[in-house]
Design a protein around this nucleic acid. Sequence first.
DNA 1: CCTTGACTTGGAGTCGACTCCAAGTTTTAC
DNA 2: GTAAAACTTGGAGTCGACTCCAAGTCAAGG
Lengths: 148, 148
Amino acid sequence: MKAEQTFTIKQAAEQSGISEDTIRYYEKIALLPRAERKENGHRIYRQEDIQTLQLISCLKKTGMPLEEMRPFLTVTADADPAEYPELVERLKKHRENIVSQIDSLQQVVDFIDMKLEAGRYRRPDDSCSTKKESQEKPPASTAQNNYF
Amino acid sequence: MKAEQTFTIKQAAEQSGISEDTIRYYEKIALLPRAERKENGHRIYRQEDIQTLQLISCLKKTGMPLEEMRPFLTVTADADPAEYPELVERLKKHRENIVSQIDSLQQVVDFIDMKLEAGRYRRPDDSCSTKKESQEKPPASTAQNNYF
DNA sequence: CCTTGACTTGGAGTCGACTCCAAGTTTTAC
DNA sequence: GTAAAACTTGGAGTCGACTCCAAGTCAAGG
């Protein structure tokens, strides 16, 4: 029925916030699968490709290097659920990473708020980074956060 | 009274997770102020310097480029509260950035959870990145999140 | 028919952020 | 006294991630 809308690389760039050059670069390094071409050789993108690009953009913002994204993109490409158990493991692991990153960011937000509210030192505050491998079990609220 | 504990660059590296070389590099590009030296020329670090390093480590994890960190570190260095109004503005702005980044990350977490829970597509889901300049007013919960 | 614009390719160049020398000094350890 | 450890400096090299360029193709407009 529906003719599956397609997009040019320019449109894909606009919608994802990733430049055309960069999209081609991603294809070149095989971060993205080779895009389909029209008869004239021009790349064509579908809605799901745009979504993949947006996911990349998302992950990039969080400072993830391209190589680390590969497993994620595999999952997006072929939308299998939990067929590759190793991949699922990776995803879970990264989910934890992200949650801890959110925690880190929260610390920064707290730091800023502290700085903003006054010159008053509440507590130096650590827990942000290194050394302490953040206790595994309850990743609950290390600090109360009222921003969510 | 108290003799203010000091650390070597090696100790600073251990405690911050930033390599000695990198710490020297940061000093070279003046991301960090020139560290005090002992008579023999060796750098010495105090607790607050370690904290600054940890903050850098924190921000790095969030993908922030070094140049963007400068304003933050200025604030840490001289612990003035709201004496530089421009700086305060920057901090507030970045705080918003971070909150939105947390939001982005939350989307990724949601995405992972969705993928993990089943191959079922709940909804493509956007809102993560680009195009939509995320409405200014209520940065409240774009999506319900039950991780916090 | 010729130009303009949107694309293609391969490859070179850039830039940020390290990372790794080499040469030198000083302290500690035996 | 000699060697190893822990530092110093300046500078070169590397690596990831683009970013730019030149040359070429194709489609539509004046």
